[in-house]
Amino acid sequence: MPRAPARGGARLLLPAVVVTGAVAGTATVSVLMTAFGLLPLVGAPTPGAAAFVALGGDLLLGLRESLVIATLSTLLAAAVGMATALLLVRSAGVRRRLGALTATVLSVPHLVGAATVGLLLSGGGLLPRWLGVAPTAWPELVGGGWPVAVVLELAWKESAFVALVVTASLSRRLTDLQEVAAVLGADARQRLLRVTVPLAAPALLASAGIAFLYAFGSYEVAWLLGRAYPEPLPVLAQRLFSSIDLAARPQAAAAALVGITVALAVAALAVPLLRRWGVGR
């Protein structure tokens, strides 16, 4: 008898799980071992937390910088993305014009985004030229005292992501539920606050969570547009990792390990919250 195609046994999950598990698992274990001195490039293993101690304050400053960048850019992306989504679901005309633009921004690689935001916001950039401000009078948005350009680039890209995710989650059923709410007596403002926003909330939270994790682990944007000190974790780790001093490798791994741990902790905190909100239905 010919066999029916498997409808969805665990067997079908195996290839994806094996590839993901093997790659992510090996890499994580290797970072862990390197950070604790168990996997030196040359010589005998020297177990211990020496790498963490050597990094000291830089590690904490880097973590703080990463968290600040991720938090600010996520808040901004969520606000702009949500506003965009609300406009997109409101009218087909807006959807045609703004929709193509958000999809375009979504497909721009972050590195290209960082390059062009640099060309826009630096002292010699487009904005000071068009506003007629001399480069010396222009605030140091790129590489200055605050990671302004970094946050703006991440918020720019991720707001497009948030907008598309929220729009997709709303478009299916919003019209019907809006009509029901209207005939139950809800006016336009109540429909927004009591129907649209709660319906969008799970998608907004999920996409903001993903945006936060991306921003937290992103290297190239902060490397191109950020200040020299303190460096966020990815920049700190990569500088140490590519250093000629081989002793710096465990320190790079230590920074990477802190990054992995914090990211997993954030995800672990976010997932139950999202589940309670009904994401993943």
């Binding site: 009509e179 129907v195 239905r281």
Partner: peptide, 28 residues
């Protein structure tokens, strides 16, 4: 507008609000 006509409507599909529990749907 529909919300001020003193009428309500039941549609072919139930269209319950997914973000509210049963009682809050009825209390809407």
């Amino acid at each position: 507008p529909p919300e001020r006509r003193g009428m309500t409507m039941m549609f072919q599909k139930p269209h319950l609000f997914p973000h509210l529990d049963v009682l809050d749907n009825v209390a809407f």
